[in-house]
């Protein structure tokens, strides 16, 4: 009467899985890099205390931090094409949503890292005669980046998990691949267990590495 596990079936879809895994990783890396670029640019711009510049950036950041990512992805897929009056392929809509989401968190991480540097460092650099650029490059950023790395790595790990939401717009990532294999094999237990195991196999070492690095930066 006990359930008879059968993982053999799962392995016969190896090519499928590899492709799904590849898409999950590609979206993770791509949207994290895109988000990093947005974060650096927006975070830098926030340092210029001009209202016309900071207000729209704060609006963007709060908008993406305070709405669920699932809603954003669905909105980008179904609503944005209507707003722009262009057809947006699913892979692009979803990628855009994920990137902007990562960007909003990266902006806060970047800004937070910069403003966490003691005001004495800024005044000492200025008193020596450094320009803003020299001060940023040689004094502030070297110290701030060290503090930005742990939260950024943590956010990237969360981002990898979030790519599973690609499922809702039928981008064939790891999660969506799982659903296809299920409809083929009618083995949800084995399939979704395997999906979870694959995420775990990637995320657990990353998480371990991140907390080790965090401890190193703290000391």
């Amino acid at each position: 009467m006990a359930y008879k596990w059968d993982f053999g079936l799962i392995f016969s879809y190896a090519n499928f899985w590899a492709k799904g895994l590849g898409i999950t990783l590609a979206y993770s890396v791509g949207t994290v890099l895109g988000g990093l670029i947005i974060g650096v640019i927006c975070g830098m711009l926030l340092l210029y205390k001009r209202k016309w510049l900071t207000l729209p950036i704060h609006f963007y950041v709060e908008l993406f931090r305070c709405t669920p990512l699932l809603v954003q992805i669905v909105w980008f897929y179904y609503a944005l094409p209507i707003v722009l009056a262009v057809e947006l392929p699913a892979w692009l809509a979803a990628g855009l949503g994920l990137t902007l989401y990562m960007g909003s968190f990266s902006t806060e991480i970047f800004r937070g890292g910069i403003i966490s540097i003691d005001k004495g460092q800024w005044q000492a650099a200025r008193a020596l005669g450094m320009t803003n650029g020299e001060m940023m490059r040689h004094i502030i950023l070297p110290q701030a980046i060290k503090r930005m790395v742990p939260p950024f790595v943590n956010q990237s790990i969360i981002q990898l998990k979030n790519t599973s939401l690609l499922y809702v717009v039928a981008v064939p990532d790891l999660m969506y691949t799982g659903s296809i294999v299920v409809s083929d094999t009618f083995r949800p237990l084995e399939v979704y267990t395997s999906v979870a195991a694959m995420y775990f196999a990637i995320l657990y070492p990353l998480t371990l590495w991140a907390s080790r690095m965090e401890a190193k930066v703290d000391q």
Partner: peptide, 17 residues
Amino acid sequence: ARFRARIGMVFQQFDLF
């Protein structure tokens, strides 16, 4: 920056890098 470069300043809290 050039103006400041000609004047040295030392602070209460040292503020070394």
